[in-house]
Design a protein around this nucleic acid. Structure first.
Length: 291
DNA sequence: GTCCATGTTCTTTA
DNA sequence: CTAAAGAACATGGA
């Protein structure tokens, strides 16, 4: 459910509720969603030996959430003393603040944090995820920063973006999905951005001109900004912590619009499969060899 | 029963 | 060696 706009919307909704509160207790119902690094979690799937998952309770209990922010598609809880916790929502992950009487029959709920603060009512933060592609990572003080992630789109210059693109010798679609090249985009916003920039998803990154890179980055920033304002796109699972749907799906120009007329030229939108993902585009607005 | 899904990583193939 | 493709994770909805 989450790409950059959805994750940002979750952070924006949660921050006023959790920042400044202290974690009074931890109810970890599935320990296999936790790791010290996302990498070690993979080993769990393949029965190969891996370090035991850290016991979250002693690491988190008594710590105060000093800041909540988004990095790529991760929701980062700063815990003071340079310790951090991050939650990745995977495809169907959801964070909410259920009332106390509901917390016992929440389906697929894997982690509950009781949050206390002076002069404020207690709150519960619940992480649920039916498909369990999401995960929770505890980063002890001194953990290296996100060296595994590319730059954030909003602070990226078009000159650097152009250098990143031309260095990646692959189709635009797979390059833009690569979190180590550019952080935060997923299947929806890559398709929407390429359409807005008039670029074919299979066009080669090395063939993109500086002007096209600039147009593409501007499209990415504009679409992400508008999607955040709409609190994301709800196609099936995504909800804000308050349970509301986003509304940016109403503004999609290609994603999930196979056969519908392009909102620019009325040509039916096409769907292909590339990099294992549905890829939507307008064959007229996004010609194979642009310009 | 079938196919599909907003994500990511590992393995296999070419 | 590299890039693309395939598979895997797990669940539910159409």
């Amino acid at each position: 459910m989450p790409e950059l706009p959805e994750v940002q919307s979750v952070v924006d909704a949660l921050a006023p509720e959790v920042v400044g509160r202290t974690i009074a207790s931890v109810d970890l119902r599935r320990h296999d969603i936790v790791s010290l690094h996302a990498i070690t979690r993979l080993a769990a799937r393949k029965k190969s030996p891996r370090p035991a998952p850290p016991d979250l309770a002693p690491l988190l209990t008594g710590r105060t959430i000093t800041r909540l922010y988004r990095r790529a598609k991760r929701i980062v809880f700063a815990l003071g003393d340079d310790a951090h916790l991050y939650i990745h929502l995977g495809m169907t992950g959801h964070l909410s603040l259920p009332s106390a009487d509901l917390t016992h029959h929440l389906p697929h709920t894997h982690l509950l944090l009781q949050l206390h603060a002076p002069a404020r009512p207690p709150a519960t933060l619940a992480f649920s995820d039916p498909r369990r592609f999401g995960h929770v990572v505890y980063l002890p003080p001194g953990s290296p920063p996100d060296t595994d992630l590319g730059p954030e789109p909003f602070t990226l210059s078009s000159a650097r973006f152009h250098r990143l693109l031309t260095a990646a010798r692959r189709p635009l679609k797979s390059a833009l999905l690569d979190q180590t090249l550019l952080a935060g985009l997923g299947n929806i916003y890559v398709d929407e951005s390429l359409h807005a920039a008039g670029l074919h998803p299979l066009a080669h990154t090395a063939a993109v001109t500086p002007a096209q890179s600039q147009a593409l980055l501007r499209a990415i920033k504009r679409i992400l900004r508008r999607a955040i304002a709409a609190r994301g796109s709800t196609l099936r699972d995504y909800r804000t912590p308050g349970g509301d749907a986003g509304s940016f799906q109403l503004s999609h120009r290609v994603y999930d619009r196979v056969g519908d007329p392009c909102r620019t030229c009325r040509t039916p939108i096409v769907r292909i499969v590339h990099a294992q993902r549905s890829t939507h585009f307008c064959p007229r607005c996004q010609p194979p060899c642009p310009r």
